[in-house]
Nucleic acid binder design. Structure first.
Lengths: 202, 202
DNA sequence: CATTGTTTTAAACGCTGTTTAAAACGATTT
DNA sequence: AAATCGTTTTAAACAGCGTTTAAAACAATG
């Protein structure tokens, strides 16, 4: 046999599919090789390690999905509308990409250090423009003074954590996966209101 | 050599220490055996599997820490005070037990199914009394009508998720571990206020 | 004192991710 | 056209993992 030149892509595609199906840890390199129809050693030849292959897949996936989030965060949108759009798009994104959720969980689980060395992530959370907006609006008296870091952490928590505890919520409330997805949909309206409420004067 | 009768405990202790230090996945059974000063096979003899040993350690850890949380949630405390205490104690608990955070992350990461089959967790989130309180207070007009499930998920998200993204927050804000812990401490006041705000009429 | 059931041991099993060294191949140079 | 060179593919092995096995060592019992 010879080059065929799409070997790398075949590995990438097979791994993506298997990682989605069964999770990263439960997918073996031999399985990937079989599915891709290539020799076992080629995975290491092209990606150096399984970890590296995972990183490549994750980075591509984040890049594909994060552009809109970054655009919204750095747009000139009025604050409340920006929060609404950001939450809405983010929740939709996680809803439509279970793989993304699994990957994020895997990353968070692993990360004793290696987080922002993944460029895909550090770009995703470049919040300078948003931070400035929060401070400016507070100066103008339009909203309450708030710590931008806390606010952003609040926002991410309310958006992402429910996906992490999906099984817990399903078990506790005796609901199906479909019903859970409805529950998540409800949050697209609820979470922005809660965040905006927290910025109001009282 | 002979029974020594604390072999099981020695395994348990060594594993707990190593799991805390390096995480479950990065700790091998051979390492546990060495640290405990026992034969490799004894881990399987006493705990059947590494997964089972993990479950045993996790269950004990949760039991030790969750009593107070359950007590608060089912107490007769007035709603606002209950929220304040719950958040305060929960955050303190996670702050003082990094092992607990790692374990929860590991569990969430694994869980494609097996969540509430861990009794320790299902007890932890028995929220009937709390749910009733939210509904009653709304009927009395003291708070806004709210979906108790959403509210509880909000609460857990704001409490727990920041621990999960610890490295991300540290990297992004260029802060040390100590400064991160201060950031977490600030949330003990912030999070309850946000939750209580979300219950106010407007 | 022999027997029984429990605990410990050394060795192996089947799996994992990864490395090795040689083979096969395509393209380039002579 | 043949030889050379760098790339790609292969089969085989390696070291590590969690786990199992079967025999040995031991403590308690009849």
């Amino acid at each position: 046999m010879a080059k065929s030149r799409n070997t790398e892509q075949k590995i990438f595609d097979a791994a993506t599919e298997l990682f989605l199906e069964k999770g990263v840890d439960r997918t073996s390199v031999r399985e990937i090789a079989t599915k891709a129809g290539i020799n076992l050693a080629l995975m290491n030849y092209y990606f150096r390690s399984k970890e590296n292959l995972f990183d490549a897949i994750f980075t591509q996936l984040v890049k594909k999905n994060s552009e809109e989030l970054i655009r919204i965060l750095n747009s000139e949108l009025e604050l409340e509308e920006k929060i609404r759009q950001y939450v809405y798009v983010y929740i939709d994104m996680l809803s439509e990409n279970p793989l993304l959720v699994s990957f994020v969980m895997a990353i968070l689980h692993r990360s004793r250090e290696r987080i922002t060395e993944m460029k895909a992530i550090s770009n995703l959370y470049a919040t300078d423009q948003f931070t400035k907006q929060l401070i400016d609006e507070a100066k103008k008296g339009n909203i309450r003074r708030t710590d931008p870091t806390h606010f952003f952490v609040d926002m991410l928590s309310l958006i992402a954590f429910p996906f992490a505890i999906k099984m817990l919520v399903m078990d506790k409330n005796n609901i199906t996966e479909e019903e859970f997805m409805l529950f998540i949909q409800e949050r697209k309206a609820r979470v922005p209101e809660m965040l905006i409420d927290s910025l109001r004067h009282r």
